[in-house]
Design a protein around this nucleic acid. Structure first.
Lengths: 228, 228
DNA sequence: ATTCGCTTGTCATCAGATTGTCAAAAGCGG
DNA sequence: CCGCTTTTGACAATCTGATGACAAGCGAAT
């Protein structure tokens, strides 16, 4: 199973995270300050690191930078109060792969960690995920197709992320509406079709005959990362 | 159908929830205090628990913690006033999987419960079923015969699933129409034959002499997973 | 064994449902 | 207020499932 290292000084959060990740069969390691964290990261070789930006001793930013220098391929997920990441550019500078703001939902954190690990396993170089001739960088909210930039909107990204997190599975329109749009909004199912249409137009080689974003008539849609 | 346990002391809310979930064919169980709730959770093995944080007797938090210890697989959805969950970290600490704040929309609660059940099942259910030289993956809605892809429609999958759930048993056309097509539609029995025909053509080695989808003259059909 | 009556297999066709697509309206943030 | 994103509604294109006709198969009685 995967190993995860959490660098965090709040005991409450540590305990909560332990419960969450142990339930998912992670090998769970912790450090309560930066120095410890860096040592453990070197010895335990975790598959991902969750890092609180607010720590005693070394600053979280410093730790992140150092981590990324010694273990560039290990994904780092930043845990922080909203105000601290008002500027996302900062996170990119730090080399972080993703971030979750406090207060956060357990599910979301888990999903992001798992996605980060998946991503890092697939391509050990950058925090990007690729399918077909498309490359997606979630940290930068950018996508490229055959090397050229494709602009995606916030919703399109959310939808794309959900597809990437649930490859091959048939996802019903309702499931997509619930998970991507949220439980409080009730757009018509036509909205989903339109959003799919956009993804196809932007990311498929031939939008008329989608290879990745496939229709399953009478059921919903299925994302297929690699055709064939 | 799925079983749901609601631990809640407000009779009005209980009644509302009962209407909601019974209409969706849930097996609906209730407890009005924590001790009862824990007992019922152990005996009824619900697929999900809805828990009010404000209860007489044991505190909701205590109940949640205990629930998660005894039944870590069972998703718990917290029901609470807004002020009680100002801090989502608290919920994480409790081990809850999701939460809804009062006043809540019935539809949202229902959606969240269903999503939670889906998620919990996704992680433990074996994804594929096999019979003869056929392999079926319901999550992906794909089937293969001797390793090669077979395209099945949504209805065909429904029918196939019902057969797989009721192997060896003779199923009358009426039974199939009710269970697979639903109680509201009344197609002729010829429709069933046609659907069976399709399954045979797609999944049988020799459709003319079916081995799995067998006719029981004068009665209906019987599914036989392993011939002989 | 043959025949008759009923049940089932099979096919082409058509109506209905589902989805793709577009343009206009409604939101939304700056 | 403007420009962009999202949603909606309408229509076309597509696919699916239901239907009915007819052939073939089965079982029982002759």
């Amino acid at each position: 199973m995967a190993t995860i290292l959490v660098i965090e000084d709040d005991a409450r959060i540590l305990k909560a995270l332990e419960r969450l990740f142990v339930a998912e069969n992670f090998d769970f390691r912790t450090a309560t300050d930066g120095a410890d964290g860096l040592k453990l990261a070197a010895s335990a070789a975790p598959d991902a690191v969750i890092l609180d930006l607010m720590l005693p001793g070394l600053s979280g930013r410093e730790i992140c930078r150092t981590l990324k220098q010694s273990l560039p391929e290990t994904p780092v997920i930043i845990l922080s109060a909203i105000s601290e990441v008002a500027d996302k550019v900062l996170l990119l500078e730090l080399g972080a792969d993703d971030y979750v703001t406090k207060p956060f939902s357990p599910r979301e954190l888990l999903a992001r960690v798992q996605a980060a690990i998946r991503r890092s396993k697939r391509s050990r170089v950058r925090p990007t995920v690729a399918f077909g001739d498309v490359e997606v960088d979630f940290a930068r909210m950018q996508a490229t197709r055959r090397g050229s930039q494709v602009a995606l909107t916030a919703h399109e990204f959310k939808l794309l992320r959900f597809f990437l997190d649930n490859p091959e599975r048939v996802l019903t329109r309702e499931e997509l509406l619930n998970e991507v749009w949220g439980y409080n909004s009730y757009p018509s199912t036509r909205t989903v079709d339109n959003q799919i249409l956009k993804l196809r137009q932007k990311l498929e080689s031939n939008p008329a005959e989608p290879v990745h974003f496939c229709t399953v008539h009478g059921a919903g849609y299925r994302f297929i990362p690699a055709p064939q």
